[in-house]
């Protein structure tokens, strides 16, 4: 398990990194962020870039800033930094809750938020957070900067809207409106493993009824999925266990056939999505005001 030969560059700036990527042919270069997903693939020779562009050391991409009511997070901010950030704990409890479910501290010490988003693993936590929080992903390319909404960023299994010469530079996470309740739950075979299935939920209560409900499930499709049909069923209704049960059932009926593997059959994943949605709604409602 030793990587195939590749060239390595550690550009001194984001601009330089974009230029390097632009100069490389398609599929020749790969961006190395924290490496916690890419390095195993390199060691197994499943990823075989000719050039690795290492952006993990770019200080200009390592920050957690308040931006308006939300947070702007540099793509090379480690999960560990997010986990330990008081700002994140206070302002983005859902993001914090998701972070501590990712791997272990030894992985989070290297793994970055940008790396996770760009890897777009359908069972990963961060894409689900991005969808649930309505995050925006800022990317830098040869033609400058563009901002992609989370719902447009994640395309399918391990595929994002990033163009070959583009680099994800920042994740903007808006603040949850006051009184919003949230939940982030997953079922994994062991703590720290990729989720078999998971659900991120946010909702508010307006005059005793659910509002602005967002339900995102992950691990069950080719990417994290926001499920409108279930959300619509909840909005405008009183938060009862019966309602949440119906919403979970609805969700499990409308999602496409999930993946089946040795850890879980498709039917099991579908049912987990139901259960986690139901439990997530109840938890979010209990935190909402």
């Amino acid at each position: 398990m030793k990587p195939a030969r590749f060239d390595y560059a550690a550009p001194g700036s984001l601009a330089e990194a974009v230029t390097l990527l632009a100069q490389s042919g398609e599929d020749e270069a790969k961006i190395l962020a924290g490496g916690q997903s890419l390095m195993p693939l390199l060691n197994m020779r499943l990823a075989r870039p000719q050039l690795l562009v290492d952006v993990s050391g770019l200080a200009e991409l390592d920050y957690i800033r308040e931006q308006g009511a939300g947070l702007a997070i540099g793509a090379m901010t480690t999960k560990r930094a997010l986990e330990q950030s008081e700002l994140v704990k206070r302002r983005q409890p859902l993001l914090h809750a998701a972070t501590v479910l990712i791997g272990h501290p030894q992985i989070r010490n290297r793994g970055t938020i940008g790396g996770s988003m760009a890897q777009a693993d359908p069972a990963a936590e961060y894409p689900a957070v991005a969808l649930a929080m309505d995050a925006e992903l800022v990317v830098q390319g040869p033609d400058g900067e563009r901002c992609i909404k989370a719902e447009d960023f994640f395309v399918t299994y391990l595929t994002t809207a990033l163009e070959p010469a583009e680099i994800l530079s920042e994740v903007r996470v808006p603040e949850l409106p006051a009184g919003t309740g949230w939940s982030f739950r997953e079922v994994a075979r062991r703590h720290g493993d990729f989720a078999v299935a998971g659900a991120a939920v946010t909702l508010r209560l307006e005059a005793g009824r659910c509002a602005d409900t967002r339900i995102v499930v992950f691990g069950v499709g080719d990417r994290a999925l926001r499920v409108d049909e279930a959300e619509q069923l909840v909005d405008g209704e009183a938060p009862t266990s019966g309602l949440f049960e119906r919403a979970g059932t609805k969700l499990s009926e409308v999602i496409e056939e999930p993946l089946s593997d040795l850890h879980a059959s498709a039917d099991y994943r579908r049912d987990l999505a139901r259960v986690l949605t139901q439990r997530g709604l109840a938890e979010a409602a209990s935190r909402a005001s």
Partner: peptide
């Protein structure tokens, strides 16, 4: 074989 890495062959950790 489907259990070809430690992502599939699950050894107990201290949490288990």
């Amino acid at each position: 074989p489907l259990s070809t890495t430690f992502m599939e062959y699950l050894l107990p950790t201290i949490n288990d």
